[in-house]
């Protein structure tokens, strides 16, 4: 059967991203932090395809080197959020009652900060390094994932196959792991993809605001921040990292959107 256009596009995109993460540094023409002092602020040309920055560093190389931290950071923080949110949501939805009440009120409090603000606060107070960025964004995503999983598992927990398992005398762990989890898996995949997109935005915004990874790490958001002062004369310093962010984040959103549509189809096949 011919693959639908959309899923081919999604697959292609995922492959590109994986390649970028794996090979970015090898395809890059120059090391990310190599100074070419005679080629400061050069526009895009044949030697430096996307131009150079104020230290004469090759913009293309920095973008390629920057792909890995940007994407790994996003994947790790989205993963952490989903990893924290899934058990919380499953347990709250399945057990209900007081436990649900307590867990969800805690989630409410975490939710009562705008995402970027909470992430910023945590990173600032814990110190700007990649691990803390992942932790901060993971915590920001935690209640959002938990709420989603809870709403699904709450609905599932009322279904009769869960009642049947309870009536049989199955252990809670079995019900959570074998009966409920497979049913939320497809939603988790969608949620994860959309969270990756959100994490790319958040990490980029954090580094743009100067919170997050510290120079000279070639994070894309940081490159935009540093390049902003040369906007008038060297717009490529801002434009190309922006384009990189746009490509990856739009692509991820499209993949997530595509997956969401697939999952929403009634009687649709299972994903993952």
């Amino acid at each position: 059967m011919a693959m639908p256009k959309q899923s081919r596009g999604a697959l292609l995109f995922l492959l590109t991203v994986i390649l970028l993460i794996a090979l970015g540094p090898w395809i890059a023409p120059y090391p990310a932090t190599e100074f070419h002092s005679r080629h400061i602020l050069e526009g895009p040309g044949t030697t430096y395809l996307l131009g150079t920055d104020e230290f004469g560093r090759d913009v293309l190389s920095r973008i390629l080197w920057g792909a890995r931290p940007t994407l790994l950071l996003a994947l790790a923080s989205a993963g952490l959020g989903v990893l924290l949110g899934t058990p919380t949501g499953l347990i709250a939805g399945y057990f209900g009652g007081r436990l649900d009440e307590i867990l969800m009120r805690v989630m409410d409090v975490l939710m009562s900060f705008p995402a970027l603000i909470l992430a910023m606060l945590i990173v600032v107070m814990m110190g700007p390094n990649p691990v803390n960025v992942v932790l901060a964004i993971g915590v920001v995503f935690w209640p959002r994932s938990a709420r989603l999983v809870r709403s699904v598992s709450q609905d599932l927990a009322r279904r009769e196959f869960i009642e049947a398992a309870k009536a049989r005398g199955e252990a809670h762990v079995f019900i959570l792991g074998r009966e409920l989890l497979p049913n939320v898996l497809s939603i988790l995949v969608v949620d994860f993809t959309l969270r990756v997109a959100a994490a790319i935005l958040l990490t980029a915004s954090l580094s743009y605001l100067g919170v997050g990874v510290v120079p000279p790490t070639p994070a894309w958001g940081l490159m935009v921040r540093d390049g902003q002062q040369f906007l008038q004369n060297a717009p490529w310093l801002v434009l190309f990292p922006c384009l990189a962010i746009a490509l990856v984040s739009v692509g991820t959103v499209l993949v997530g959107d595509y997956l969401r549509r697939r999952v929403a189809v009634p009687g649709g096949e299972r994903i993952a």
């Binding site: 980029a204 915004s205 743009y208 434009l239 746009a246 984040s249 739009v250």
Partner: peptide
């Protein structure tokens, strides 16, 4: 999808580039 996926600073910088530079 595009405006949702783009960080505000990217949209902002592009707008500055176009409308003030």
């Amino acid at each position: 999808v595009f405006t949702f996926a783009l960080p505000e600073f990217v949209i902002g910088l592009v707008l500055i580039l176009v409308f003030s530079i």
